[in-house]
């Protein structure tokens, strides 16, 4: 009680040791607003946690195998699929479709973004239709695509390419528009030709935006793949999964999902690696 009622002057008379201001551990300077370095291991943490949850849930019976097959069943299914060669051949088909669509779509996206970003006419003609396409879901285009291009590879690749085109176009176009006007002025004073301006100023300036688009595009190429392979396909991972659905084989469906997930992740990691080396001049939060 007396302790509590002691008046303010006591603080002044407190022993030296108590008056000492404890130095709070200071955060490392220059780091406070940055998220800190990211390692490959840190990036794997999220997916790893999911895997642990899935395994644990299945092991203790929290997850019904009829709803979601346990990981070990999926692993053995992978073994079986690989043993009879179905995994490899379907995976190869899917990869070919995805890569073909990706290459075409990225090329078209960059080309259109350049035309729209660097010329008034291009902007007027291209930007509107691309935004319209952006608003239309890929799935809704399938019936028309089948009528136009049939049910063969051509249709699938075109659907993937047009889906991939959107994120590449949108991000590259925005980045081109955002290239600093001061650099444009510099290009004028050193007398750069239009071609050189595009190659040495516009394109490198838009590269960060392009890579954002490319990362999205890699994922989109896989998701578009799922759509086209579940419609009238006779091969590919999506076909494998559609068949499995007919026979109620959840383990094959999961195996297919795992393939999609792994390749999505691998694709994204690959693009990030390319991005890091291509944009090594940048000093930003992420690096």
């Amino acid at each position: 009680m007396t302790e509590v009622s002691i008046p303010a002057p006591r603080t002044r008379e407190a022993p030296a040791a108590q008056r000492d201001v404890r130095l709070a551990p200071r955060p490392p300077t220059g780091r406070r607003l940055r998220p800190g370095p990211t390692s490959a291991r840190a990036l794997a943490l999220g997916p790893l946690l999911l895997l642990v949850g899935w395994t644990g849930g299945s092991a203790v019976g929290l997850i019904d195998p009829a709803t979601l097959s346990p990981p070990w069943t999926v692993v053995t299914t992978f073994g079986e699929l690989a043993a009879d060669g179905r995994l490899q051949s379907n995976l190869l088909t899917s990869l070919q479709r995805s890569v073909a669509g990706l290459v075409l779509g990225v090329g078209a996206g960059v080309g259109l973004a350049l035309l729209a970003g660097l010329t008034r006419t291009g902007e007027a003609i291209i930007d509107g239709p691309v935004q319209v396409k952006r608003a239309v879901p890929t799935l809704a285009l399938i019936p028309l695509a089948i009528i136009w291009f049939g049910i063969g590879e051509q249709m699938k690749i075109i659907v993937i390419a047009t889906s991939v085109l959107i994120p590449v176009y949108v991000n590259t176009h925005a980045a081109l528009r955002g290239v600093d006007a001061r650099y444009v002025e510099l290009a004028e004073t050193v007398g750069l030709s239009r071609l050189r301006f595009v190659r040495q100023v516009a394109l490198p300036g838009a590269l960060p935006g392009f890579f954002v688009g490319l990362r999205l595009a890699v994922t989109v190429s896989w998701t578009a793949l799922v759509v086209v392979e579940q419609v009238n396909a006779t091969s590919g991972i999506g076909y494998l999964m559609t068949q499995a659905r007919t026979y109620g084989q959840t383990e094959i469906i999961i195996a297919g999902l795992v393939v999609y997930a792994v390749f999505g992740l691998v694709g994204d990691t690959a693009v990030r690696a390319i991005e890091r080396s291509a944009l090594s001049w940048r000093r930003t939060l992420g690096s």
């Binding site: 001061r182 510099l186 004073t189 040495q200």
Partner: peptide
């Protein structure tokens, strides 16, 4: 004729020598 601006206005994605010989 050439211009020197208040900011150095170097292209950040080009190495020093490439900036110098730009164009």
């Amino acid at each position: 004729r050439s211009v020197v601006f208040q900011d150095a206005r170097l292209l950040p994605w080009a190495r020093v020598l490439d900036n110098v010989v730009l164009g």
